[in-house]
């Protein structure tokens, strides 16, 4: 634009700036509206989907996982009644996922407490899922089963209750810890080793495999035994004291 000097020039410049800014506001408003409409459309579609496939969602773990992920990505909580009333989608769909999840949470507690005596409050995720599926009389991961992600979500929903349940990862296995206690670095290493050794640990193997001093190995094992109650000790082994970690052993049901 050719620049002119004087009052008239300045006024014109102001005028055009105002016009531009008005146009800009209008444009972004339009974009926002369009976006809003799209989101609304998506929500409606999601609602319709949730309503017509409610049974499928509750039955199939894969579909449920995908659905929950979709809900989260557009910022809606699929848990009915789990939050304040802005939780519109859940109210509208009446999906009952919240109830479903709460129920699963209760079952997770059931299993964790029920097996605590033999595993010291640390249960392997696959084992937990297996017991849950059996409790529900359903096939594993198949029709009507539950999978690890469901359990993770259920545990997350238990958090406000202060139950102290947590998912911890050791090596490539996830565990659910139902006793409020941190696993320190040594415990984690020992647990990982126990997992590889079929649940059996002794001082020598710890020293050899992890390269620890005897003192550190002994202290770690004793902590695991006495402080955490996570293992049982066998005094009848010719090698000396041998520690068994029931939570990483495979149990046939009695």
């Amino acid at each position: 634009m050719h620049r002119r000097a004087g009052i008239a020039g300045l006024e014109r410049k102001n005028l055009s700036r105002e016009a531009y800014s008005a146009l800009q506001t209008k444009l972004s408003q339009q974009q926002l509206d369009a976006m809003q409409t799209q989101v609304d459309h998506f929500r409606t579609a999601l609602q319709r989907f949730a309503r017509s496939h409610r049974a499928d969602i509750l039955r199939s773990p894969t579909l449920r996982g995908a659905f929950v992920q979709m809900c989260t990505s557009i910022g809606v909580d699929p848990l009915q009644g789990a939050g304040p009333s802005r939780n519109k989608l859940a109210e509208l769909t009446g999906l009952g996922l919240g109830e479903w999840q709460a129920e699963l949470g209760v079952q997770v507690c059931d299993v964790c407490i029920g097996t605590r005596d033999r595993n010291g409050g640390l249960i392997e995720m696959p084992e937990l899922v297996r017991i849950l599926c059996r409790m529900r009389g359903l096939g594993e991961d198949g029709e009507g089963g539950v999978n690890e992600d469901d359990v993770v979500r259920a545990i997350r929903s238990l958090k406000p209750l202060g139950a102290g349940y947590e998912v911890v990862t050791v090596g490539d296995t996830r565990f659910v810890r139902s006793v409020p206690r941190e696993l320190d670095v040594d415990q984690t290493a020992l647990l990982g080793l126990a997992k590889r050794n079929g649940g059996v640990l002794d001082e020598d193997s710890v020293v050899q495999t992890l390269g620890w001093t005897n003192e550190r190995a002994r202290a770690g094992l004793e902590n695991m035994l006495l402080r955490d109650g996570m293992c049982w000790v066998d005094e009848q082994d010719p090698r000396g004291l041998v520690y068994y970690v029931p939570s990483v052993m495979v149990w046939e049901d009695d």
């Binding site: 035994l225 006495l226 049982w232 000790v233 005094e235 009848q236």
Partner: peptide, 12 residues
């Protein structure tokens, strides 16, 4: 379970 036959020391 081998340690089932050893008198355990941890109360729980």
């Amino acid at each position: 379970l081998h340690p089932f036959f050893t008198h355990q020391t941890v109360p729980t």
